[in-house]
Design a protein around this nucleic acid. Sequence first.
DNA 1: GAATTCTTGACTAACTCAGTCGGAATTAGA
DNA 2: TCTAATTCCGACTGAGTTAGTCAAGAATTC
Lengths: 144, 144
Amino acid sequence: MKLSKKSEYGLRALLELTLAYGTATLQRHDIAARQHIPVEFLEQILLALKRAGLLASRRGMKGGYTLIKSPEEITLGQVIRILDGPLAPISCVSKTAYQKCRDCPYANKPQCPVQHAMGPVRDAIAGILDHYTLADFTSGHHHN
Amino acid sequence: MKLSKKSEYGLRALLELTLAYGTATLQRHDIAARQHIPVEFLEQILLALKRAGLLASRRGMKGGYTLIKSPEEITLGQVIRILDGPLAPISCVSKTAYQKCRDCPYANKPQCPVQHAMGPVRDAIAGILDHYTLADFTSGHHHN
DNA sequence: GAATTCTTGACTAACTCAGTCGGAATTAGA
DNA sequence: TCTAATTCCGACTGAGTTAGTCAAGAATTC
């Protein structure tokens, strides 16, 4: 039931990139310093977000990262799925990464009690996180 | 965001114990066989649930485990907290195990964006799991 | 006292998490 | 063209967690 550091750092990094959206590109060390994230670890995260199509980057002097989509289009659910995998507490109730549970005596049967309990949990989590955008995430936030 | 095998097995074991509630005591190997759980691993789980006050046990021949409280009084939230720890996705929004996040630039400040997003998630999860009892969990279930 | 069952504690192999490191590729500016 | 700055990529690591396994001890019944 836990959010990894990777996702937490990823969200905080995207917060900075959202604040800079349209006006500036940010470098690893800028983000790392503002959010107190180890720079080499942050790098991995930014690369993953880039591969997933959320960020663009430039190398060399004056390089850095920028958001490639508008903050209203990116949800926390997307980000967490990229960095941490599926939101569902158990894969037999996942919608984005469903997997039949093997060795469960109720697998396949219509009334698996675990699914019955965890389905609504996954829907509640996804219902919040898939409607919460980076714009929402940043609103109310002012630097220093 | 994931439920451990420990919790999953624990819930499935409690399902069997709920079905037997008031009529029989179950032994490790009964539960293990019905739910396809490795018996030595199940043992740890049952012991933890016993220490937490949900189960009673007897040793020796004709021994076994029984539910000590009625199924309406035990929620999935309680069980998962015993076996997996807090439900909150991040400890700074936990109500049962709050911890200030260190090294977060927003720690203490009233408007931490991560808390703002994850607070409702933790409330949604707890809202479901703390109202879902073993009685609900078992309803609609009939053996074979 | 023998068989059965829970109890306790230690042990382990595999995996994940949270980084760290070294070097290669790209770009800007001198 | 040279150099400094920056991203990119892969490998590596130490600590901790997960999912068990195992052996020996204590209680209970027959």
